[in-house]
């Protein structure tokens, strides 16, 4: 079976910025691929090239076996696009938007009306069908935009950060749509900044940074690599770091552990919440003053941190317990990424 998406050695430069630097990507037909990366990693550039909106400087792009650079007009009927910003007409109603797009996708008049009604019902917008889109809430617009991307029943759909800026309810609704699409055999390429989202939806994850792939594998492999849950301890006095680390090691074992100059210690653990009472007791007994103690899920920061360690190109079959990295490294990576969360 041919790959639904096959991208090789993609390069794209905007002035001084190398947006894509030799990116490779393949998505098997019917799979959900998560393209994970921070702002400016090149995710949107990839999507725009795949959607025939942008030409790369070099590289090859095939969608469902069709060369998207030579014959974009043959790719367009096969794809659907939903962007980060709702690409719908504000001054038309929800129904008018979808009917028009169905007509533009070369559907008959009656079929277009039916398809518009069907999608409006499916996305919970039937009641708002006759209202101008400018009166819609952000979540409703995004749902309409997603419906618009599906109007022609595409074989491949590109979702560019479909849930960024959405409230949790709308996000869950979009997640459900993606799961349904996947179950129906549609190939999905989804970009996201959220590890949790990629974990929920994607069969495979590709992590990109600076226009190149820094890791790929299943979400499980990625999480194993990152180390699952992390226990975070913030010390009142950063000087107590060594004593604190000894105590922590004694309780949680030898997971990947890091600390920064401000007295924050982060350690990968399994079943972190259950360890907290014991850890609190031990730290107290060792007279370590703790400002904050928490268990949190791994974030994109953690994934980057794990993947940008020297000598690591792939997360497939990676060592789940890497050596603790240098402190400066942690600080640099964390400081550089905090705005991406």
């Amino acid at each position: 079976m041919p790959d639904a998406i096959a991208v090789e050695a993609l390069h794209k430069r905007y002035g001084d910025v190398q947006a894509l630097d030799g990116l490779d990507l393949t998505v098997e037909q019917g799979a959900v691929m998560g393209l994970l990366g921070p702002n400016g990693a090149g995710k949107t550039t990839v999507v725009r090239i795949l959607a025939t909106l942008l030409r790369p400087d070099s590289g090859s792009v095939r969608v469902c076996g069709v060369d998207a650079l030579r014959e974009p007009e043959r790719v367009r009927p096969l794809i659907g696009l939903t962007g980060q910003y709702a690409a719908v007409d504000e001054k038309l109603t929800g129904f008018e938007n979808l009917r028009m797009l169905a007509r533009l996708a070369r559907r008959g008049r009656t079929e277009s009306r039916d398809r518009a009604d069907e999608l409006l019902a499916e996305f919970g917008l039937a009641d708002a069908a006759g209202r101008l889109v400018r009166t819609y809430s952000g979540g409703m617009r995004r749902r309409l935009d997603l419906a618009a991307g599906l109007i022609a029943r595409p074989e491949v759909i590109f979702l560019d950060e479909p849930t960024t800026g959405l409230d949790p309810r709308s996000r869950t609704a979009i997640w459900k749509v993606v799961a349904d699409l996947s179950a129906a055999g549609t190939t999905v390429l989804l970009t996201t900044q959220y590890l949790e989202e990629a974990d929920r939806l994607a069969h495979t994850v590709v992590v990109v940074d600076h226009g190149t792939v820094i890791g790929r594998g299943t979400p499980q492999e990625l999480k194993d690599r990152v180390g699952g849950e992390r226990l975070e301890v913030r010390l009142q006095d950063a000087g107590q770091y060594e004593r604190a680390e000894r105590v922590i090691r004694g309780v949680v074992g030898d997971g990947p552990c890091s600390h920064d100059d401000e007295g924050r210690i982060s350690v990968a653990v399994a079943g972190g919440a259950m360890l907290m009472p014991e850890l609190a007791r031990e730290l107290h007994a060792a007279q370590v003053v703790v400002a904050d103690l928490a268990v949190r899920r791994p974030t994109l920061d953690d994934a980057f941190f794990a993947l940008t360690e020297p000598g690591e190109g792939s997360i497939s079959g990676a060592d789940p317990a890497p050596a603790p990295p240098e402190a400066e490294h942690v600080t640099a990576v964390t400081a550089g990424r905090t705005d991406q969360r």
Partner: peptide
């Protein structure tokens, strides 16, 4: 569906078509 690519850097140095 995982396509294993152990060395992602190599492609960026190759001059692509």
């Amino acid at each position: 569906s995982v396509k294993t690519t152990t060395d992602t850097k190599s492609t960026s140095t190759t001059k692509a078509t």
